[in-house]
């Protein structure tokens, strides 16, 4: 039971990184300027790297799982536990950066608190991932300001992106019995604490960027239960293609 809960907990972090990493990799060769193309693919590399380490560890925890590739590429849709937020389409650059900012702001506090986990692996992982997340956060939060207070057109694009993406942010703070069990052992993080800090920071930053906070919010929490948006099937078709076509293939 204990192992199962830790497995599920790590899988959620890993799937968020994996799917967001894939989404960001779609920008490769399409960035608005060369530097931004490189930045977005660097982000993607970091997220896929995080997922790789976490899936490796998951494979060690489960006796019937051979390796990280099996977890990454051969699960069914309902077995992926990522947030809807990270599977949303990239949209334009404004939408990608806004999704990134909301997620980075969550991750920076999440990894910061997880750095004190009583689980040795999670503690070491969080301390390591926090360093690169700080660079992500700096980058995405600067873009929010730059575009928000840039021109009337860039502001309009950011506002549209915010109206679309913000309503998916509630799910970041979803907790169930897995979280409660691990919080009680000082392994997991109490997301309610992060929610308070996150909301305050995000509202302040978006307001500074001349953006209006939309009031509409979703109240469904489905990603962690393996239910996904209509976009997810297309992502899986892409990422699973090689393993499904050539089973057990390796680079």
């Amino acid at each position: 039971m204990q192992t199962e809960n830790i497995y599920q907990y790590i899988l959620r972090i890993a799937d968020d990184s994996f799917i967001l990493g894939h989404r960001l990799s779609e920008w490769c060769g399409h960035g608005p300027i060369l530097e931004e193309d490189i930045a977005l693919t660097n982000f993607a590399l970091d997220f896929i790297g995080q997922a790789n380490i976490l899936y490796d560890y998951c494979a060690e925890l489960k006796k019937n799982v051979t390796n990280a590739d099996e977890i990454a590429f051969l699960r069914k849709e309902i077995e992926y536990k990522n947030l809807i937020l990270v599977e949303l389409p990239n949209g334009d650059f404004a939408q990608t950066m806004l999704r990134q900012y909301l997620f980075d702001c969550f991750r920076i506090h999440f990894f910061d608190m997880l750095s004190n986990s009583s689980d040795d692996f999670l503690q070491a992982f969080a301390q390591k991932a926090l360093l690169e997340t700080k660079y992500h956060y700096k980058h995405s939060s600067e873009w929010i300001l730059r575009l928000g207070i840039g021109t009337s057109l860039s502001n309009e694009k950011m506002q549209n992106a915010l109206n679309y993406v913000m309503k998916y942010s509630n799910e970041l703070f979803f907790m169930d019995e897995v979280d409660q069990d691990l919080i009680s052992q000082n392994i997991g993080v109490d997301l309610a604490i992060i929610q308070t800090i996150w909301e305050k920071e995000v509202v302040a930053h978006l307001t500074k960027a001349n953006l209006k906070i939309p009031s509409e919010k979703n109240t469904f929490y489905v990603g962690r239960k393996g239910k996904h948006s209509e976009f997810f099937g297309y992502i899986l078709t892409d990422v699973q293609y090689m393993q499904r076509t050539y089973p057990n293939m390796q680079w």
Binding site: E35, I38, A39, N42, D46, E132, Y135, K138, H139
Partner: peptide, 13 residues
């Protein structure tokens, strides 16, 4: 600083 993300993860431009 041109960009905090360069030719590899560990370098800036």
């Amino acid at each position: 600083l041109v960009s905090n993300f360069g030719s590899t993860a560990c370098k800036a431009h």
